[in-house]
């Protein structure tokens, strides 16, 4: 049984079809990338999966539960976590409080009280290496630190599916490698399925994702293993006819 089943989902804004009749599945514990140029409908797809938008047509089933009409907080309770492209930590709350908020309201939220969530937060703070900043307001951190706080906050939610919006944008190659290792580690230890959204098929995708869903103008172009996608003529066509190898850099 797949973790998430997306069946013929469509989303329109006025006359514009942002997501056009898309179907795919996400399996337990796999890593997948949703790839596509700017405007391909990736962000809308993300927002549909975690309930920021509701689908106009189609159906979404998360572990046997029909979540098509669920608001985002109920999907979070079931185990869908999310990070944003531009990190959005709660600025006035400390790093510890930010991460604890994920713990106390996420999938495990009903069984976790405030004190337990704060203790849990300490574990994640160590994991992301921000212990010296534990009691500082998150608003004052650097962008990379904010991103780490946000990932920790999402992990503290104990998700079974983690959606990462341009997780590695703006990072240098060394940081990307570190992040890939970090995410692989998380996936293997906690059995979380990770769906990363990226603009280009680059080293991060190749290193992390087992499977790639390429979107083009709101529709699904291909859904296949990463290596095949990299040499798929349809994918190359979308990226202005350039050979996919260029995007490895």
């Amino acid at each position: 049984m797949p973790l998430l089943k997306v069946r013929n989902v469509t989303k329109r804004f006025g006359g514009l079809v942002a997501v056009d009749d898309i179907s795919f599945e996400i399996r337990h514990g796999e890593t997948m990338a949703i790839v596509g140029p700017n405007g391909a409908g990736k962000t809308t797809m993300f927002n549909l999966i975690n309930g920021v938008f509701l689908a106009d047509e189609g159906q979404m089933i998360f572990e046997d539960v029909d979540v098509t009409h669920f608001p985002s907080y109920r999907r979070a309770h079931l185990g869908i976590g999310r990070t944003f492209q531009i990190p959005r930590p709660f600025a006035s709350a400390t790093v510890r409080e930010n991460i604890a908020i994920g713990g106390m309201f996420g999938a495990a939220g009903s069984e976790v009280n405030v004190d337990e969530a704060l203790e849990m937060a300490d574990h994640y703070i160590e994991l992301i290496g921000l212990t010296p900043h534990r009691d500082k307001p998150a608003g004052g951190l650097t962008p990379i630190e904010k991103k780490m706080v946000e990932i920790a906050r999402a992990l503290a939610m104990k998700p079974r599916l983690l959606l990462m919006d341009e997780a590695m944008a703006g990072m240098n190659p060394t940081d990307i490698d570190k992040m890939v290792e970090f995410l692989k580690d998380i996936r293997d230890k906690e059995g979380i399925a990770i769906v990363a959204m990226v603009e280009h098929i680059m080293r991060a995708v190749a290193g992390l994702a087992e499977r790639v869903l390429v979107m083009h103008q709101g529709a699904k172009l291909v859904d296949e293993p990463t290596q095949e996608a990299l040499s798929d003529p349809k994918v190359i066509e979308v990226y202005l006819g350039k050979p996919a190898e260029e995007f490895h850099a």
Partner: peptide, 26 residues
């Protein structure tokens, strides 16, 4: 302030959409 209500209110005061995504019934 010392219970979940306070944390939820802080979160929604700072960023209501992000709070929802965190599982908070704002």
């Amino acid at each position: 302030m010392r219970n979940k209500v306070g944390y939820a209110l802080t979160a929604l005061r700072e960023d209501e959409d992000a709070a929802k995504v965190m599982g908070i019934n704002v």
